[in-house]
Design a protein around this nucleic acid. Structure first.
Lengths: 109, 109
DNA sequence: CGTGTAAGGAATTCTGACACG
DNA sequence: CGTGTAAGGAATTCTGACACG
């Protein structure tokens, strides 16, 4: 049984408009990153997205990687690797490869 | 110069609808407590209120006192006393008096 | 692939006011 | 005094789609 304790940082209480102001990202981009499974906001009864401070942090990291040319697909993989418990060393190594691919403009990744 | 550092708890990022869900208080009551100077939400550019987790906590305390028959005016005073740096002992003493007034249904307070 | 935009609808929020008590 | 409600308007959010590249 996995118990996740609710912290101030993990509670989903921020609407997308405020997240947009906090991160500087457009609402469109935030929705897109959710679509690509990079963030997982909750929903209000009506259906509006609710984010946490952790999500805000994650979004800023994502934005930086996107700027570096890393594709959402790659970012998604990095997350998966971390979840599997790889060491920081291994993850950094994988990330470096991603960066190199980005810089050399590889067609397929 | 008073410097206030922004913590996760003090950042104003929650809209009134979510605060309502979090506290169980009606939107009307939350707005009223602001009117009575018990809470101080910030505003978005457009004018919507933004609350912090601290505000949410404060609202729950306020709600409890209201249930006990304490008037907003009294609650406001308790806050003022705390801001002035009274000891917990003194504040508790003052609060007790307020409770008593409430229980005995005093006309003027 | 990543992101902007126009489209149409539904729900939110705001203020000032009237009601009741 | 504390809180509900109807009123009218403005801004938000949602989804699916078309555009560009």
């Amino acid at each position: 049984m996995e118990e996740e304790k609710e912290t101030l940082k993990s509670r989903k209480v921020i609407t997308i408009g405020i997240v947009s102001e906090l991160t500087g990202l457009s609402v469109r981009r935030i929705r897109y990153y959710e679509e690509r499974k990079l963030i997982f906001p909750e929903r209000t009864k009506q259906g509006s997205r609710k984010f946490s401070f952790s999500d805000v942090e994650a979004l800023m990291d994502i934005a930086n990687k996107i700027e570096d040319g890393v594709q959402t697909h790659e970012i998604r993989r990095e997350m998966a690797r971390r979840e599997r418990g790889l060491t920081d060393r291994e993850v950094r190594d994988q990330m470096l490869k991603g960066q190199l691919r980005a810089h050399f403009g590889e067609t397929r990744s």
